[in-house]
């Protein structure tokens, strides 16, 4: 006989202290960690963004500074420092590790400044496209009356020839915007505007599809039955649930915006020539790429790596944010 009385309460008590409930974002991160490409891509994007943000403080050379007087003869067309590895007659200078261009401007400083412009255009255009796309998607998914016309409109915009229209818009509206907002500000508004206005359609379609499915669910019915207004149903219940497709199309939007801006600069309708962007640097260097291939390759590589990183990030996010794939 055991006289050890079993304490009924002790059996029910937890052996270890209760863990905090796992948040959704921790699950997402756990899945995201497994996608090596996405980690690298995200890391590279953060690195490039930080580099162009704090770069001007670390490398304090004015990208527009040109040598004075006769110095231009010695200071222009300096090759990057690594060229000296295989060509010891090359003109290199530690003061300009990536060389200078044909009028003696420091190329590293130009790359940093160009990256600032390219990334700024990319982010701003992406945010604009997301705002329009989400608004159109939510309204046409939630309000039945607006659905038909908004979606017809989206289809129409989808069948516009985007690149020719971008070229037309940028060329024709360049002068008045420059006059009103200054050469750089005007071009920035124009390019961000046209890219944003022509790339919101995919987001709108995806968001609409998700909203259509979500608004038939019970929690929306419950919310409505206690008298929640449409506005707060959208803000409180619907938008948080469509955040993952929005994030995925944000990454795609960022990649497209960067490429489109560079393409416009390359075709000669982008920013003015004293305002470098990566596409502009590349386009300006194409004329003399036989003698100075690095001036084409460096900005081109930066564009490609950034876009590659963003695309991989999007891939990883898609996997991580999809609850059906997550946990497998």
């Amino acid at each position: 006989m055991t006289d050890q009385a079993i304490d009924p309460y002790a059996a029910l008590q937890d052996k270890e202290p209760p863990k905090a409930p796992r948040s959704q974002w921790k699950d997402v991160w756990d899945q995201f960690k497994h996608h090596k490409g996405a980690l690298f891509g995200g890391g590279f994007l953060v690195f490039i963004t930080l580099a162009v943000l704090i770069g001007p403080w670390l490398w304090q050379v004015d990208p527009q500074a040109t040598p004075k007087g006769r110095e231009i003869l010695t200071m222009r067309d300096i090759r990057p420092i690594y060229v000296a590895l295989w060509d010891n007659t090359a003109k290199v200078d530690w003061a300009h590790p990536l060389g200078t261009d044909q009028i003696g401007r420091d190329f590293l400083a130009n790359l940093i400044a160009g990256g600032r412009a390219s990334m700024a255009v990319g982010w701003a255009a992406m945010v604009l496209a997301l705002l329009i796309g989400t608004a159109v998607g939510v309204v046409s998914g939630y309000f039945k009356k607006a659905d038909f016309w908004l979606m017809r409109f989206t289809d129409l915009v989808l069948s516009l020839p985007i690149l020719p229209l971008l070229l037309v818009a940028v060329t024709l509206f360049r002068q008045p915007l420059r006059a009103n907002f200054g050469p750089e500000g005007g071009m920035f508004i124009l390019i961000v505007g046209v890219i944003g206005l022509t790339s919101w359609m995919q987001t709108a379609r995806i968001v609409r599809g998700d909203i259509l499915a979500l608004k038939e669910r019970e929690f929306i019915l419950a919310a409505r039955s206690i008298g929640t207004t449409s506005g707060s149903i959208i803000m409180r219940h619907l938008l948080p649930n469509v955040i993952s497709p929005i994030m995925v199309s944000a990454t795609l939007g960022l990649a497209t915006a960067i490429i489109t801006e560079s393409a416009l600069s390359f075709l000669g309708v982008g920013f003015p020539s004293d305002f470098p962007t990566w596409g502009k640097l590349l386009a300006d260097a194409v004329q003399r790429m036989e003698q100075y291939p690095e001036r084409v390759i460096l900005p081109g590589l930066l564009i490609s790596l950034t876009v590659l990183g963003v695309n991989y990030l999007g891939d990883g996010l898609r996997d991580a944010l999809d609850p059906r794939i997550r946990g497998r």
Partner: peptide
Amino acid sequence: TMIGFSIPPFFTGPLLIV
């Protein structure tokens, strides 16, 4: 294919020419 997706034609073109 991811690389082909990401490298814009205005970079591959000059690169191939070089």
